[in-house]
């Protein structure tokens, strides 16, 4: 049992210190085993929260803290956070030429293991084949260059493939449903659901209730204007689908 605690988190874009904060005092606690959904209108800080938790150097924490079991991780670089168990399924994954998908995922797994004990290649390939089958990904995607020329849907599926192979403790999924047709959405949701367990927690960012029909969250939060303004059970997502975000309190969004 592990706890991720976000305490009064304030965040700016590092390159724009004169601009106002994007996050203005976020408080959130996630325990392992839980799935949290983060909803809210565009441009209100949801992606910034996910990127800041992951350690994107673009963002600067100006106040507050991020703690795992009481230990601050704010000063850790992104790769160390990843090895601690964070994973960010990105909205726009980078394309990287010259590095195959299979080679990359193996390097990511080995980065978590002692240098003299890499994952045996046969065991790895077997696991990769099985996971790709769950996600209904064609075999050749293992040998293609990382995200290079992948369609939007293929990239999202590839993020979930990495999630399932790397098996993080804290999965931040940023609009993993955008650009997916209904079949792909089901497949991706199924992948995430397979990860559920006592050692796994997730913060799922989405605009639509649709994804939450397939991945039932334990807690739903609404973020507006850099703060979490409402928290409830899964029923909150259904309410929002009917009423929208307009009536909720707090100020205007940033966009």
């Amino acid at each position: 049992m592990s706890t991720l605690e976000i305490r009064d988190l304030h965040v700016k874009v590092k390159a724009e210190p004169e601009h106002p904060e994007i996050l203005r005092g976020v408080n959130l606690t996630i325990n392992s085993g839980e799935i949290h959904a983060l909803m809210g209108p565009n441009g209100n800080g949801k992606s910034t929260l996910a990127e800041t938790l992951m350690g994107n150097p673009r963002y600067l924490v100006t106040q507050g803290d991020i703690l795992i079991d009481g230990q601050s991780i704010v000063d850790l670089p992104v790769d160390e956070r990843a090895r601690l168990g964070f994973f960010l399924g990105m909205q726009y994954p980078a394309e990287i030429n010259g590095v195959t998908n299979a080679e990359f995922i193996r390097a990511a797994i080995n980065a978590r293991r002692p240098e003299d004990d890499p994952i045996p290649i046969m065991a790895y390939l077997k696991q990769l084949d099985e996971t790709m089958a769950v996600l209904k990904m064609p075999e050749d995607m293992a040998d293609r260059y990382l995200n290079q020329g992948f369609s939007g849907g293929e990239k999202k599926r590839n993020e979930i493939l990495q999630l399932m192979m790397i098996k993080p403790h804290w999965a931040l999924l940023d609009e993993i449903d955008s650009g997916l047709d209904i079949d792909a959405l089901r497949i991706v949701a199924n992948g995430v659901n397979q990860m559920r367990g006592a050692d796994f927690a997730s913060l799922i960012i989405t605009h639509y209730e649709r994804l939450l029909d397939y991945i039932t969250p334990d807690v739903v939060h609404v973020m507006k204007d850099g703060q979490i303004i409402e928290t409830g059970g899964p029923e909150l997502a259904h309410q929002l689908e009917e009423t929208g975000y307009e009536h909720l309190k707090a100020g205007e969004g940033n966009d």
Partner: peptide, 27 residues
């Protein structure tokens, strides 16, 4: 962006850099 992506999967910076460069040259 590419470095961040690779490092966000746990690859140390030196390895991530090598992969990005290799990919660039590979073209």
């Amino acid at each position: 962006t590419q470095l961040y992506y690779l490092m966000s999967r746990g690859l140390p910076e030196s390895l991530a850099k090598r992969l990005v460069i290799r990919g660039f040259l590979e073209a």
